[in-house]
Computed example of a mutant assay.
Amino acid sequence: MIRTATPADVPVLHTLIRELAEYERALDEVRATEDQLTQALFGEHPAAHAHLAVDDTTGEVVGYAVWFLNFSTWRGVQGIYLEDLYVRPAARGGGHGKALLTALAHLCVTRGYQRLEWSVLNWNTPSIAFYESLGARPQDEWTVYRLTDEALVKVSRMTPHRMGTAQ
């Protein structure tokens, strides 16, 4: 079963996020707190959304998807960017990952969004095989770049900038 996360789910969601980071060999990079997740998902202006995969037999949350809306200037419409998709190892193969992606694809189609996009680590061959089995194709002509931490601060200070609003 797939359901929308509620504020009461934040502790288990935070645990799952940490499990994903450990799987991706980056647990030391997780800085998000439960309070931050609560604000991001359920605050006055939510920045992201979450769906949970729940085992039908036990009622245990076994996976999650966190996503947010993006926009394609070429298509002229919004889409979904899937930030995280994770299913606990013991629950893999039970259809939970497929159900999460199906739910997001359904949201795209019913809301008129024309893209569902995400990134996957190059070494994560089980996930790559899974995504490709569903018809997803890598966008290998694009390379993701990221500024964080000191580099982000350094670039922010390079050039004087002015941000204003149109009158």
Rank of each mutant, 00 (worst) to 15 (best):
A91Q: 07
Q39W: 06
D140A: 13
L147N: 04
Y64L: 15
F42N: 05
G43Y: 10
E132M: 01
Q114H: 07
A65T: 11
D56L: 12
T148C: 11
G43D: 07
V61I: 14
W67F: 10
G97D: 11
L41E: 08
L116Y: 00
D56E: 15
A99T: 06
L20Q: 14
L121G: 06
L116R: 02
D56M: 08
A53M: 10
T125G: 02
K98W: 01
T102E: 13
C108L: 03
A50T: 06
E150Y: 02
T110H: 03
E60Q: 13
V62M: 11
R75E: 14
T33K: 03
W67T: 00
T58G: 07
L85D: 09
S72T: 06
T57Y: 06
H45D: 15
A48M: 12
W118S: 00
D35Y: 01
Y113V: 00
G63F: 07
F68Q: 07
W74R: 11
E150F: 03
G76P: 11
V120F: 10
V109M: 05
K154G: 09
N70W: 05
V109L: 12
A91V: 02
E60C: 02
Y81H: 12
W67R: 00
A50C: 15
D28L: 04
R31E: 12
T73N: 06
S72D: 06
S133V: 05
